[in-house]
Simulated assay, not measured.
Amino acid sequence: MKQLILMRHGKSSWEYEVSDKDRPLQQRGIKDAHLVAKAFKESGPVIDFAFSSPANRALHTSMIFLRDIDFDLTRFKVDKHLYDFSGDSVDGFIKRLNNEWDTVAIFGHNYAFTSLANTWGDQYIENVPTAGLVHVTFDVDDWSKISKGTTKKTIFPKDLKQ
């Protein structure tokens, strides 16, 4: 069985005149990433490897999340193919993953993550919110063969706030 954790970057700031790749997280994005990590740590699977888009907001989200779950950062890489908004590049990236890894987390962007969560999962998600996490499982042993899977869990910041 293969398991994919899709996490959209936290809420970013438009306050600075920087390129899209350099946009930072807002304070809310930082807090939400911590909230989601805490919820995931309580019930999520052990992640074998993790990847992030090179965009600042995705990379910062990944570092907050992975540190909060005590993840070994030697099993983490940044990959330019995850700086994708359509989902085509992410789809190809996932299908080329090393089959030694059963559970992989990726940190990236919308519209790609909402599209892929709906393509691969069995629950319709109107929109994966910022810092939202979707866990999808696939009954295959080869990443290149993933197609329709099961949406095991969603963790969205608004559901964690009281």
Rank of each mutant, 00 (worst) to 15 (best):
Q3K: 12
L4D: 02
I5F: 03
L6E: 00
L6P: 05
L6R: 01
M7W: 04
M7D: 04
H9C: 04
H9F: 14
K11E: 06
S12N: 06
S12F: 11
S13N: 06
E17T: 02
V18T: 06
S19D: 03
D20N: 15
D22I: 07
R23H: 01
R23Q: 08
L25P: 08
L25E: 07
Q26E: 15
Q27H: 11
R28E: 04
G29K: 10
G29P: 05
I30V: 15
I30F: 13
K31T: 15
D32F: 13
A33L: 11
H34P: 06
L35G: 03
A37K: 00
A37M: 00
A37Q: 02
K38S: 11
K38F: 10
A39P: 09
A39D: 06
F40C: 00
E42M: 14
E42F: 12
S43W: 06
V46R: 12
I47V: 02
F49H: 09
S52P: 09
S52L: 07
N56D: 07
R57N: 09
A58S: 03
A58T: 08
L59Y: 15
S62R: 13
S62D: 01
I64G: 02
I64K: 02
F65G: 04
F65Y: 03
R67W: 08
D70H: 12
L73S: 11
T74G: 04
T74P: 02
K77W: 06
V78F: 05
V78S: 12
V78G: 04
D79I: 11
H81Y: 12
L82V: 11
L82S: 10
L82K: 07
Y83F: 15
G87Y: 00
D88P: 13
S89G: 09
G92D: 14
F93L: 09
F93G: 06
I94Q: 00
R96C: 13
N99V: 01
N99S: 00
N99L: 01
T103E: 05
A105F: 05
I106P: 10
F107V: 12
N110G: 01
A112S: 14
A112T: 11
S115D: 11
L116F: 03
A117E: 02
N118I: 07
T119W: 12
W120Y: 14
D122Y: 02
E126Q: 04
N127V: 02
N127Y: 05
A131D: 06
G132E: 07
L133E: 01
H135A: 04
V136A: 07
F138V: 05
D139M: 03
D141I: 10
D142M: 09
D142I: 14
D142R: 14
W143L: 04
I146C: 03
K148T: 14
K148A: 12
I155V: 14
P157Q: 13
K158R: 15
L160D: 10
L160E: 09
